[in-house]
Computed example of a mutant assay.
Amino acid sequence: MTTENEQPKKILLVTGGSRGIGRSIALNAAKRGLGVILTYNTQAHNAQEVIDDINGKGGKAIALHLDTGDFASFDGFVQKVSAVLREEWNRENFDYLVNNAGIGQRSLIQDTTEEIFDQLVNVNLKGVFFLTKNLIPVIIDGGQIINISSGLARFAFPGSAVYSALKAALEGLTRYFAKEFASRKIRVNSVAPGAIDTEFGGGKGNEEQRKQIAAAAALGRLGDADDIGLFVSSMLSDDSRFVNAQRIEVGGGIMI
């Protein structure tokens, strides 16, 4: 953590940082001395708990509302980010963007409506594309973007067809981001969690289902949010300076 009078050298913006994996990324990044801007959509109370935790330990964190499926709000959001950077850190840009916000799917193909399909596309792919496009001018040269994908982009379970296809598309988009932002030395990678025991992921369910999923991993257990948060925060430094355009799965060796 930074001390009260010390400004952090690097700043992270993580979407969906109020709970689960995003919360863990925010908390672990702050432990490494990063300033944190986290976004929330409906979980304002949870977001406040995260920033209170970070600020109470001598770090600096700010929470901003963002619906990643509301593209019309992105210009205003970028203006808010710029204002926060100037007011809180006396900076015009930030260093790291983690596109974590997303929504899951629990419907078989025959039960998936056009409304469900479009909502999944808007939040999990289109929102990531246009939010990143809008934020790129505010990301420092030599910065880094991490897109949170899913192990489901590699293996298949019934009920996740659209979500999984979108995560596969996100991994392809990651490579194009890396290619087109290379002139500014901005690195872009994707991190694909396996079965993680959070409200969002496949970890929550009946005990028999949990055991079956855990047995599919070489390490013999479900992951937890910190398994991902610790790894992602470890990438947010120059230690990963030559890692670019990669898909890194963090799943305990699931489905190998």
Rank of each mutant, 00 (worst) to 15 (best):
G76N: 14
G127S: 09
D95R: 08
K80F: 03
V121I: 13
N122L: 13
F77C: 10
Q79T: 12
Q105R: 03
I103R: 10
V50L: 03
E49R: 00
R106D: 08
Q79S: 15
Y96W: 02
L64C: 07
V50R: 00
A83T: 07
H45W: 10
V121G: 00
N124H: 05
Q110E: 08
E115S: 15
A44Y: 14
I116V: 13
F129A: 00
V123Y: 04
A44C: 04
I51R: 01
L85A: 07
S107T: 07
D75F: 04
L64G: 05
Q43G: 00
E88S: 08
G58Q: 10
D53V: 13
T112M: 14
K60E: 08
G104L: 10
A72W: 05
L125W: 15
H65P: 05
L66H: 01
V128W: 01
V128S: 02
F117R: 01
L85N: 10
F74G: 11
Q48S: 06
K60V: 14
G56R: 10
Q119E: 15
E87T: 09
N124R: 06
N122I: 00
E88R: 06
L97Y: 04
G59C: 11
D70F: 05
Q105N: 03
I51Q: 00
N100A: 13
K57Y: 07
I116G: 00
G69M: 08
W89N: 07
S107K: 15
G59D: 03
L97H: 05
A44M: 09
D95E: 15
G102T: 05
I109F: 15
Y96T: 08
A61M: 13
G102H: 02
N90M: 00
Q48T: 15
Q119P: 01
L66T: 09
A47W: 01
G127N: 11
I103Y: 02
V78P: 04
S73R: 06
L108H: 12
Q110P: 02
H45E: 12
A61H: 11
V50C: 01
K57N: 15
D111H: 05
K126C: 07
Q48I: 06
Q105H: 04
G69S: 15
N122Q: 13
T112Y: 12
E92D: 14
G56C: 10
N122D: 15
A47D: 03
L125N: 10
N99F: 13
S107L: 07
L85P: 09
N90H: 12
L120F: 04
N55Q: 12
F71R: 14
K57W: 03
I51H: 01
D52L: 03
F71Q: 05
H65D: 13
V121N: 01
